[in-house]
Write a protein that binds this DNA or RNA. Structure first.
Lengths: 244, 244
DNA sequence: TTTATGCTATTTGTCTGACAAATAGAAGTC
DNA sequence: GACTTCTATTTGTCAGACAAATAGCATAAA
């Protein structure tokens, strides 16, 4: 005798999944308004609280956003690039934070995957995109930047580099690696000298991109990673000494 | 006069962020139990419903899991590889489903990034991992598989391939591309002939991996992608005809 | 002593009903 | 016509209740 495959997951989770499927499969179109929470509640035969828990699950994935008032409601959200980048960076920092990935792995991944990405970039980069990279670099040169701001500028520079690949999927993927590398940069940037070095590497990268010199790009990025790794292990050793 | 930067986001969202920070920064360790919902509610001075909405947001990101009963509660979740893959595949299918990425881009991304990944694989693959790939291929050969099961087996095969790189970050990243490619496979696998072709390509890939032949791996994967793209455009044209 | 059984306390899951806050649109006022 | 006020709608939050799961303890039976 075969029972109906008992359902272990909670109602709110199931509703979240149903709504998610409806959205991803296009039954609710992007930007469209879902039924009101009360309506969903009666439709699923549950309380509003349960529906809301389901909706919050979706909100956490940037799948819906909500507005109050008449004309308000829960809307299917077309995630912006910024939101996608955010959720990716969330996942990446989570992985690093929980120790599921170590620094060496991340650097190796960057080395491993950058080749193809740069190859695309030298072919596809538009003048405007090269300009964006240059702008990011200019911003990074400001000596008054706080450590945090310097890191942000660093991320912006590297994002610009992969943006130049003009491929949304590559960008999606490389963004997560860039984010995962932030902890390294963070440990290195506090010294003025290190900042200067990083900027010098970045100038080399920009130049190679402008000349659409793939070899140059790759060796420059490799050198930058070498430098970061070395400085990182130094900083780590110092920190360990401090701790003892 | 500068007010305290007005807070636009909802309380439950803020609480979710605070808890998230506490988890990522390690103030709650992996596997540890959070305070009970009642306790969190009183601690933050809000109702239990609000706390629950916050917790559900975190649950949606696989950051916490909950259990009922005494000894139950909300626990910090060390995301398993399966869960990570799931959330990634979620993001990827979302991107495809919402049309933020088109198929050509995804295939190009795969072509672009596979080189480095395969390079790692031929160097690092353990005997066991090669065995896993072989097992996945055997499973895929079963002619009784449903379309869906065939696709699952296909995903398992490709995952095995990138697992062989022995780099968690590369794996994380390539998984998302593999997932994003599922819709293509889905449109192609319904014909027996196409299945046979795919399996033939996979056999080529497996062989090249066993021989640690990087060139062979790359050309085989390129050929597979060529084949899929061609069959995909055919299927798409047919579907369009049907619709008219 | 060991095993089985049932009880109890604890914690999450869900429900109900209510009010607060935001806000679009209508109605009224100048 | 421009401005203000009112009203209805919808999400955000709250309070309290009960249901369901379950670990641990106590008790009973072998």
């Amino acid at each position: 005798m075969q029972e109906q495959a008992i359902i272990k997951s909670s109602i709110s989770k199931q509703i979240a999944e149903q709504l998610r499927n409806a959205i991803v499969s296009g039954r609710f179109k992007s930007g469209e308004r879902l039924p009101t929470e009360d309506e969903l509640a009666t439709r699923y035969g549950v309380s509003r609280a349960t529906v809301r828990e389901a909706l919050k699950r979706l909100a956490a994935q940037n799948l819906v956003r909500s507005r109050r008032g008449p004309a308000g409601g829960n809307f299917v959200n077309q995630p912006t690039h910024a939101e996608l980048a955010e959720s990716l960076s969330g996942a990446a920092t989570l992985l690093v934070g929980l120790g599921a990935l170590d620094i060496e792995e991340i650097v190796e991944a960057r080395r491993t995957l950058q080749g193809g990405c740069l190859k695309l970039a030298v072919v596809n980069a538009s003048q405007e995109q090269i300009q964006d990279v240059e702008t990011a670099l200019q911003l990074q040169k400001d000596p008054a930047l706080s450590d945090e701001a310097f890191c942000d500028a660093d991320v912006a520079f590297h994002r610009g580099l992969v943006d130049a690949s003009n491929n949304g999927m590559v960008r999606f993927v490389m963004y997560s690696i860039i984010e995962a590398l932030v902890p390294i940069t963070n440990m290195v940037v506090s010294y003025v000298k290190d900042r200067r070095e990083i900027i010098a590497f970045h100038e080399g990268l920009l130049l190679a991109l402008q000349q659409r010199n793939e070899q140059g790009l790759e060796s420059a990025l490799d050198a930058l990673l070498d430098y970061l790794m070395e400085r990182f292990s130094v900083a780590q050793a110092q920190r360990k000494q401090h701790a003892s």
